[in-house]
Design a protein around this nucleic acid. Structure first.
Length: 529
RNA sequence: GGCCCCAUCGUCUAGUCAGGCCUAGGACACUGGAUUUUCAUUCCAGUAACGGGGGUUCAAAUCCCCCUGGGGUCACCA
């Protein structure tokens, strides 16, 4: 056999968003092509032409670009097998359809949709297997022509050879077989010649010389029809690999856009939605937008995930390198990818595991890239006026040095807004403010006493401050816990965060005093009420 | 319901094709402890699985059969 160049494809419909599960399918296709030195093709299945193409396709291509999955042929890059928009391949479909009709492999079915449906329902009721009536198959060519001339509506159906079975050797699932006598003659085209999915897909995949059809498991049931079409058209059969679909967290059901509202209430999904709410709202984006939910790739980009983190998680969903390797760059996955190590069972997306890959790669990220990534988010949130401003850059570097591993995704930097706002704009967490400053008997008193000490401080570096507070605590016979949390809340507005003394140092004496003053004032006014 | 697919810790998985190295390994999560006078990190330890029943075999998570359970799909959508 002549070694063939491996060609895989991903064929999304332009819907305006890129599903994370679809992205995983695309990734496996990309991986297989790259691993074998072949080509990865992007074809746009846009036969449903009612949409604005820019709006509908843009987010999909953006998702590929963001993750760094390039395509050798397709929109924007062209190629030798174009066009890459299904709607523009009509001539190819027409020719193939004619071929089917001429060879007798397909027939015009003049049966009314109502009749067909009635038969289907009757069969269902009697628990019989429904098969096509084929009333139109016995028509002579003249009769067929007469009906066409009369404007009698029809569809074109493939004449399924009922006496045989269709069998494929799936690269993931092994041998799978279907009995053709149980199949309905599938409609391949409408009366106006417009092709239906299974037919157009076969014609396009064959013409694009796709060697490996790697797609999600839900397409397995489309396969026998497609195989029959390949045969009827005289095309070489590609290899099939039906990979498991991505399931919703904590379940076995296919992750679906339709269930987003349900996911929002799911405990297993809570962390991701919470993160989205926290980050997206600060970016003035609509966290309730389905297109920005964790089901979509855009979510991960907007929230500040790293491509390598998302890719790592996606690759490990249904595939493993060996018995221990978890953290893998795209490069590593590409070098080691193989279809025979794809798992057969569906795999639930695990937010915890996803986050662990993400934090691993964030910890590996060079400091300047981490800084720039955060800066972009700060700028978008309006916490920094100009991401290129040297002061902003320096401040961000300092905050990052302080925050250490607390930044898991770039969006987390927005939760450290206390370093980027003035005392007057600092937002206090009311519950914690009550708990640590308003409620404890002498909290305000201690705080003002400490304020005086801090005001007198000559040195305002972390070490000096630490000693200062230690002395303060000892002198007053207090426990550290009686003052530190209060100071933290007063100065940052939050109950937890980076190390306290370096935080104070970074904020600076004046700013700290202003914030403590504001907190004291706020607490007193609350006590009066 | 028909057809098809699937079945190892809570989750993602290794091991299954070539039965013994499996008193079933790793990771995430969880629990406990150490470090960090918050939080996060880091380190150590621990809990935790072959769905059930029959075979075949000296030996089965691995092979065969049945059952059960879960899922996908059944359009003149893609």
């Amino acid at each position: 056999m002549i070694p063939m160049t491996v060609r895989t494809r991903f064929a999304p419909s332009p819907t305006g968003y890129m599903h994370i599960g679809g992205m995983r399918t695309a990734l496996f296709n990309w991986l297989w092509a790259r691993k074998n030195g072949g080509q990865f093709v992007l074809r746009i299945d846009d036969t449903d032409q009612s949409r604005n193409m820019d709006e509908a396709l843009g987010p999909i291509l953006d998702a590929f670009r963001w993750l760094g999955l390039d395509w050798d042929e397709g929109p924007e890059v062209g190629g030798d097998h174009g066009p890459y928009f299904q709607s523009q391949r009509r001539e190819l479909h027409d020719t193939a359809l004619q071929q089917l009709l001429d060879s007798g492999a397909a027939y015009r079915d003049f049966e009314s949709p109502e009749d067909t449906r009635a038969q289907r329902e009757a069969a269902e009721k009697e628990k019989r297997v429904y098969t096509s009536s084929r009333v139109s198959v016995g028509l002579s060519p003249e009769e067929v022509q007469q009906r066409i001339d009369d404007g009698h509506p029809f569809v074109v159906r493939l004449l399924v050879p009922r006496d045989r079975r269709v069998r494929i050797t799936d690269l993931v699932r092994g041998d799978v077989e279907w009995d053709c006598s149980l199949m309905v003659d599938p409609v391949v085209a409408r009366g106006d010649g417009s092709p239906l999915y299974n037919f157009a897909t076969v014609v396009d995949d064959a013409q694009l010389k796709i060697t490996h059809v790697i797609r999600a498991e839900e397409h397995l049931s489309n396969t026998p029809v497609q195989v029959l079409l390949y045969e009827a058209l005289g095309y070489d059969l590609p290899e099939f690999a039906h990979i498991p679909f991505v399931a919703a967290p904590g379940g076995k059901k296919k992750l679906s856009k339709r269930d987003i509202d349900k996911y929002r209430k799911s405990p297993a999904f809570a962390k991701l939605f919470q993160l989205g709410d926290d980050v997206l709202s600060r970016l003035q984006l609509d966290a309730a937008d389905a297109a920005l939910s964790p089901v979509m790739v855009a979510y991960y980009e907007r929230v500040g995930f790293l491509p390598v983190g998302v890719l790592n998680a996606l690759a490990r969903l249904g595939w493993s390198l060996d018995d221990e390797t978890e953290n893998m760059s795209l490069q590593t996955v590409q070098e080691n990818f193989s279809l025979d190590r794809v798992v057969k069972a569906s795999a639930g997306l695990d937010p915890d595991k996803l986050m662990s890959y993400q934090t691993h790669w964030m910890s590996q990220l060079p400091e300047d890239e981490k800084r720039d990534g955060c800066l972009a988010f700060l700028a978008q949130a309006g916490l920094v006026a100009d991401a290129a401003d040297p002061d902003a850059v320096t401040l961000t570097e300092q905050v990052l040095a302080l925050s250490a591993d607390r930044i898991r995704v770039f969006g987390d930097i927005l939760m450290m807004d206390e370093f980027f706002v003035d005392a007057d704009d600092l937002v206090y967490g009311e519950k914690d403010f009550q708990k640590r400053i308003v409620k404890p008997e002498q909290a305000v008193e201690h705080l003002s006493a400490l304020r005086s000490v801090l005001a007198e401080a000559g040195q305002f570096d972390a070490d000096s401050l630490h000693k200062l507070v230690e002395t303060f605590v000892t002198d007053r016979e207090l426990k550290f816990g009686q003052i530190a949390p209060a100071v933290r809340i007063a100065v940052t507005g939050k109950p937890k965060g980076a190390d306290l003394f370096p935080t104070l140092e970074l904020l600076g004496k004046d700013e700290c005093l202003r914030r403590i003053d504001r907190a004291i004032g706020k607490a007193e006014s609350m006590k009066v009420v």
